[in-house]
Simulated scan of single mutants.
Amino acid sequence: MTLDKILAISGKPGLYVLRVQTRSGFVAESLQDGKKITVGLRSNVSLLSEISIYTNDDEKLLADVMRNIAIKENEGPAISHKEDNATMAAYFKEILPNYDQDRVYPSDIKKVLNWYNMLQAKGMVSKEVPAAAKEVATEESKEIVKEESKDEVAETVEATKEAPAKPKKAAAKKAPKAE
């Protein structure tokens, strides 16, 4: 499931797909009815791929939370966002057991469930980890290896600085030319 071009626009219901960027903003298409709208640069817009949910440890990306829902529901619809707060909180606790209950409000849970059901209705949810996320994971592991290599190089440089330097040979002087 990729949420790279899915937008939530403040003041507008539903989710939108980014279509075209313009000088003064961009054009987005509604996932619900397919209508296209222009959005100015002053509008408060959030990319779903950039949204995270607070947990007791750190933050969990929204895509990972939606993947957990897809796994639990076998890519089917989740419970309605119109359920009472206690039911939604219990459901969300099953999906993300360590979510921070002080910082994740019922309105946040309601949005996540509503967004998941919208994306599920359009066939945009999946239990699989997208290839881009797998590439990011391998890139992160490569970066770790690079960092470890840099540390080893730094240690080697430090060791050579501490080692006594060999005396340099004096440069041979050229004899002046006789004229």
Rank of each mutant, 00 (worst) to 15 (best):
M1N: 03
L3I: 06
G11A: 06
K12S: 05
P13Y: 02
L15R: 01
L15K: 00
L18H: 10
L18S: 07
R19A: 05
V20W: 09
T22M: 05
V27L: 06
E29H: 02
Q32H: 08
G34C: 03
I37S: 03
R42A: 06
S43T: 10
V45R: 03
S49L: 03
S49I: 08
E50K: 15
Y54T: 05
Y54R: 12
T55I: 11
D57G: 02
L61E: 07
L61H: 06
D64W: 10
V65F: 07
I69C: 04
A70R: 02
K72Y: 15
E73H: 05
N74E: 12
N74D: 14
P77M: 11
S80R: 13
A86Q: 14
A86S: 13
T87G: 00
A89F: 01
A89Q: 07
A89W: 02
K93S: 14
E94S: 12
E94I: 07
E94L: 13
I95N: 04
L96A: 06
W115N: 00
N117W: 09
M124T: 03
K127C: 12
K134H: 12
V136I: 15
E140D: 13
K146Q: 14
E147H: 09
E147N: 11
E152V: 13
V153W: 11
E158T: 11
A159Q: 10
K161I: 13
E162R: 12
K166C: 00
P167A: 10
K168E: 08
K168T: 11
K169D: 04
A170F: 07
A172C: 00
K173G: 00
K177V: 10
K177R: 10
E179Q: 08
